[in-house]
Design a protein around this nucleic acid. Structure first.
Lengths: 191, 191
DNA sequence: CGGCATTGTTGCGCTGAGTACAACAATACC
DNA sequence: GGTATTGTTGTACTCAGCGCAACAATGCCG
């Protein structure tokens, strides 16, 4: 559950025999070979050489293979107060990872609506966080919901665009800044 | 699959022995009594007096009990071209239904994140439709995604607000108009 | 009246995600 | 060497959703 727990093994019991990376890589390989839906969790753990139960020691769900890193960023953003002008820093230190891989290879992985669905959940999570913050800062509930959701959409649109562009060819912070700039008129009007 | 098929039984084989309403009502009763998660599809069909398989003749999934009516509206909106200025008519003829019931009794139904998740999916669907339309009308992809998502959020925020206000005490078209008005500055700036 | 196509209903078996939990293994610390 | 801690595994389970073949009830047409 704890990120990087295998690195910070100061306090210890039995050391981890397998890593999050091992399972993640096995999963991505299989997704590319057989598609996402066509790959069961049993398939993944077989290739990784661990028991099926172990998968859930590392990931809360199948889709978590893609999203766990992103979700940690949302956690951090929320913990920091979900300030709108902090959203630009959401992109800092973002590395091409399994999520970017998924966006790029969505067709080959037969991801279909899966990415859309999971993206929608994150959009909404960021949107809710921003909305809560905006309401606390005095904005009306309805406007806060709408403006919040728009910011969530900006983040996801930027990440998707950045990933599809090759995750390295363009700089994510720049793309995100562009997406957030679209919303400037909203913040000005509803300040 | 066809809505109101039991009414338009001009062309016929075996007539429907049970109705969508019967199952929907049984489901909502049980959701109120035992919570959403605590109610299995078998529970629902037992109370409705039909076989488990029959549930899926009427609803594509458990959550569909809440959302099937709303989804049909999105279908119609998409079929009509997803024009932004047609969104205001999304609310026309909206009646308090099982979805409104869910919003109002979310606590008692122990809906938890369920409504959030499913709402997010519809937000995204509307957002994608609007975005596609905006791109076709010449808007840049990134801006279209963001502006589209914002409109999706406006619709869902309005419906939720209207439902929670008592679904009848306020007029949905008015609430929706208010939500859409929040986004006016965006359309003006990116026309 | 009697077959026939059509449509709805039911039962059954199955896959696969996700949960719960107890048994067991490997480490650090004392 | 014992003990607490932490990771790993096996097993059993619930439940959503899919597929499908058998069966039932209707209208139609001869």
């Amino acid at each position: 559950m704890l990120p990087y727990a295998e690195v910070v093994s100061i306090r210890a019991g039995r050391p981890r025999a397998s890593s999050r990376e091992t399972i993640s890589e096995a999963a991505c390989e299989l997704f590319l070979e057989q598609g996402y839906e066509g790959t069961s969790i049993t398939d993944i753990t077989r290739r990784a050489g661990v028991a099926r139960s172990s998968f859930f020691n590392y990931f809360a769900s199948k889709s978590d293979v893609f999203w766990s890193g992103f979700d940690e960023r949302i956690d951090a953003f929320e913990a920091a107060g979900a300030r709108v002008d902090a959203l630009a820093t959401f992109a800092d230190g973002f590395e091409p990872d399994s999520l970017a891989l998924a966006f790029v290879n969505a067709d080959q992985m037969l991801l279909g609506d899966e990415l859309d669905r999971e993206s929608a959940l994150r959009r909404a999570r960021i949107g809710r966080a921003v909305s809560t913050r905006l309401r606390a800062d005095g904005m009306g509930a309805l406007a806060a919901d709408v403006v919040g959701a728009a910011h969530g959409a900006a983040v996801l649109a930027a990440v998707e665009r950045w990933a599809r562009d090759g995750a390295g060819r363009t700089r994510l912070p720049a793309v995100l800044a562009e997406a957030l700039a679209v919303l400037r008129p909203l913040l000005v009007a509803h300040a």
